[in-house]
Nucleic acid binder design. Structure first.
Lengths: 219, 219
DNA sequence: ATTAATTTTTAGTCTAGACTAAAAATTAAT
DNA sequence: ATTAATTTTTAGTCTAGACTAAAAATTAAT
């Protein structure tokens, strides 16, 4: 069944909210991310339920069905592959590609995305370290930790980010934090959980808990 | 001013109809190419005139303004550059790319299309031999003739096609007619204006006037 | 120069996907 | 256990862009 642009955006956002929780998703949380009003969301949820892409109980929240999830994953696959293309082939920076990929992810052609995948040499992660689902919608499990969970004096490698916003990515770039960087946690302040880091053997830099939470690392 | 998808498709089609005629364009001819009814076209023409992209006089037809033309040319530029990408980089055949490019041509990003242009090494023509407008909307004048205009016993080179439909392109492929082929007109039948051609030194092939009209050549 | 045929426009309708305001249900607070 | 606060849904509206049927204008035919 064909999916409209609006439907695809809802499914994508519901998927994002479902990740990391077993709870059903609230109307308001969807409204916030789609920048729509709650009433509009209710409307759309009823349509999506009708089409069999979500299970929805009035007042009780929403979940993706198997089919809904596979549609969401195919959009995420397209989004992330296009991001790789934009960075690897066209020379964009990692903070510049999100908005363009938001458009490209809706291009509809099975062959196109598979040819693109092959052209890019079947990448496993996008420029932000996020895993790229394969044709079957399977996501490689990467087992990353949030930098905020790393213990004092431990060393880890920066593998990805949990947030794609341009301002956040530009901050990381300014701090010289890029994929692959070796990080040593040299201080954790109990007061605000802010963190001091050594990158390679440079002098320490200082980041807030908020930033540390959005950095993904491997020990 | 922002352009909707529907508006872009109208402007593109009006541009195509304006080419090759000094006359104003009729509502019906637009309706035919957009696959809409005449009444819907009238509606849209009034909106486009309102925005200053066409000049429109009730019952008297329509023309693009300078601004309308530059919007149309930027869409055509995007369409043709994406076609080059699909064929050169992803390995599509020339008869497979039209529909996908119809989607990609609406992606909105000035930087994207210029980076793509550079990635493709600033191609001058698309896979069908059509010229690619530059950033300023200028189209290189190629001065091609229709094969149907070539005189008996003259030899020419196949430079492009005047029609992108998959069935037409597949026919050419089957006849071994591809860009760059050397063609000699060995017979023109006065009855139906059908043409016999020698490709290189092979034995002659036979094509209808309809086909000859849609093949572009250089003497 | 009328009349007939054709083309184009107007008037009114429909659908997707948004909205606001008010009603209904759920959850939190006493 | 009620009441208050919050969340969600319903009812009704709006806009873009399509449609049909009928009216108006233009063009073609006698």
């Amino acid at each position: 069944m064909a999916t409209s642009l609006a439907e695809e955006n809802y499914l994508k956002i519901i998927y994002r909210l479902c990740e990391g929780t077993k709870e059903d998703i609230s109307t308001n949380s969807i409204a916030e991310l789609t920048n729509n009003k709650a009433a509009s969301v209710t409307d759309m949820l009823q349509k999506l339920a009708e089409k069999g892409w979500v299970t929805y109980q009035k007042y009780q929240g929403v979940r993706l069905t198997k089919i809904g999830e596979s549609i969401a994953l195919s959009i995420i696959r397209k989004h992330r592959l296009w991001e790789v293309f934009l960075v690897e082939k066209l020379g964009y920076n990692w903070d510049e590609v999100h908005e363009i990929a938001e458009q490209l992810e809706h291009i509809e052609s099975e062959t196109l995305i598979n040819k693109l995948d092959s052209f890019l040499d079947f990448p496993k992660i996008d420029p932000h370290g996020d895993p790229i689902p394969n044709k079957e919608g399977e996501i490689p499990e990467l087992g990353y930790l949030h930098l905020s969970e790393v213990k004092l004096n431990e060393t880890c490698t920066l593998m990805g980010v949990a947030k794609d916003s341009a301002v956040f990515l530009q901050l990381l770039t300014k701090l010289n934090l890029s994929l692959g960087a070796r990080l040593e946690v040299v201080e954790i302040n109990t007061f605000d959980r802010s963190v001091s880091l050594k990158i390679a053997e440079e002098k320490p830099i200082f980041i807030s808990h908020e930033v540390a939470k959005n950095i993904l690392v491997k020990i």
